[in-house]
Design a protein around this nucleic acid. Structure first.
Ligand SMILES: [Zn+2]
Ligand SMILES: [Zn+2]
Ligand SMILES: [Zn+2]
Ligand SMILES: [Zn+2]
Lengths: 174, 174
DNA sequence: ATGGTTTTGTTATGTTATAACATCGCAAAC
DNA sequence: GTTTGCGATGTTATAACATAACAAAACCAT
C-alpha cells in the first residue's frame, strides 16, 4: 500500500509569497464566481491583506492598513464595520478562518467546502499551519456522539513550535 | 475484556447542584492546600460563581454578581481587574477552563493535573460538558508531530446539541 | 431612466481585557 | 510588639475587539 506524500502546512521561510497570495486570490475569484457571490474590490483587498503573511491578522490590523492606503489616496479613513463586514463575507464563503484563541484571521489554504480547519499556531514566530485531517474530525465527532452529543462545528487549535522555530531553538541551546 | 463505564460529561437536568458546587469547592480547597497556594475568600467566591451553572460564565457576568453582593453589604463595587486576577489564578491552578470560542469560563470537572480539557458546548441550552479524552489529545499531538510541529497546548471545542436538547428537539419535530 | 437590492459609509456604543500604580493585610524577622 | 516585606486587592484609566442602527452609494434588472 502506498502512502500519500505528507505535505507540510507550513511554507518554507523564504518562498515566493507574492505568487502565494496571487494563487489565493485567483482561487477566491473562481470560488466566488462559482458560488454566484460578489468578491468586491473591498472584500478582495481585505482577503489580500489577510494573506499578507501566513500568520493571523487582527481585524484592527487590517483596519489600520486600509486607513493608511486611503489616507495616501487622500480619501477618508475606514471604520470597524467596513472590515468586520468584509471578514464576515470571507468567513461565510470559506475564504478565511477565524482563530478563536487569538481573535484573529488567516487565509484558508483549501477554500472549497465549508470545512472548519484545524490550526497549528507557532508561539514563537506566530505562523499558522492549517490541517484538515478527517481522522481528527471523525474521532471527535464519534467520541462526542458516544456521549449523546451531536457536533455541528469543531474548533481545533494547537499552540506550540513550528518546525522552523523548533530547529532554531535547538540550535541556540548549545 | 471489560470496558470502563462511559460517564456522561453532562449532568442530569435536575441534580443536586448545591452539592455539586460544594464538591467542586472542597476539591479546590484540597488542591490548593496541596499546591501551597492560597484560595482566598475572593478567589473562592469567584470559583463558586463560575460553578453557579454548568454553563460558561463571562468575566463581566461574574463582575456583576460581585457588585450586587457588595452593594447589598453597603460596600463599594468591584472593577474588572478584581475578576480577571481571580480568573487568572483559577486558570493557572487548573480549577477552571476558558472557552475560547465564547470568551467565557467554566469550572473544571477534574482539577488535578494541568490538563487542557475538551469541550462540548450546547448551542441550545448553553451547557458545557468537559471531555478529557487522551485518544484525541494523542492523535492531534501525533498528527502535528508528523508535520514537525511540537504541540504545547490544545484548544478543542465542539459546538452542537447536548443529549437533553437533542431529545427535546426530536420531540418538537412532530 | 426607474426601482429594488446589495454593498459600503458613518456614528455611536457595547463587550472583553489589561496597564499602572496605590493600598491593605498578614506573617516573618528583628 | 514593631518593622518590614510581599502577595493580594483596590482603583483609575485605557486598550483591544466587535456590533447596532441608519444613511448614502453602487449595482443590476427591467
Ligand atoms: Zn506564502
Ligand atoms: Zn514558528
Ligand atoms: Zn451541578
Ligand atoms: Zn443543551
Amino acid at each position: 500500500m502506498t502512502e500519500d506524500a505528507v505535505v507540510s502546512p507550513f511554507r518554507p521561510v523564504r518562498h515566493e509569497h507574492d505568487a502565494c497570495i496571487d494563487d489565493a486570490l485567483d482561487a477566491a475569484d473562481a470560488l466566488c464566481a462559482k458560488q454566484g457571490v460578489r468578491l468586491t474590490t473591498l472584500r478582495r483587498r481585505v482577503l489580500e491583506l489577510v494573506w499578507g503573511s501566513h500568520g493571523p491578522m487582527g481585524a484592527y490590523d487590517i483596519l489600520d492598513r486600509l486607513r493608511e492606503e486611503r489616507m495616501r489616496d487622500e480619501k477618508k479613513g475606514a471604520a470597524p464595520p467596513t472590515v468586520y463586514r468584509a471578514l464576515d463575507f470571507l468567513l461565510s464563503n470559506g475564504l478565511i478562518h477565524r482563530i478563536e484563541s487569538l481573535n484573529a484571521y488567516v487565509g484558508c489554504g483549501a477554500p472549497s467546502d465549508g470545512h472548519a480547519g484545524q490550526f497549528l499556531i507557532c508561539g514563537d514566530c506566530g505562523s499558522v499551519g492549517e490541517l484538515d485531517d478527517p481522522d481528527i474530525t471523525k474521532m471527535i465527532a464519534s467520541k462526542a456522539e458516544a456521549m449523546g452529543f451531536a457536533v455541528t462545528h469543531q474548533t481545533i487549535e494547537a499552540t506550540g513550535l513550528c518546525p522552523e522555530c523548533a530547529r532554531r531553538g535547538a540550535k541556540n541551546e548549545n
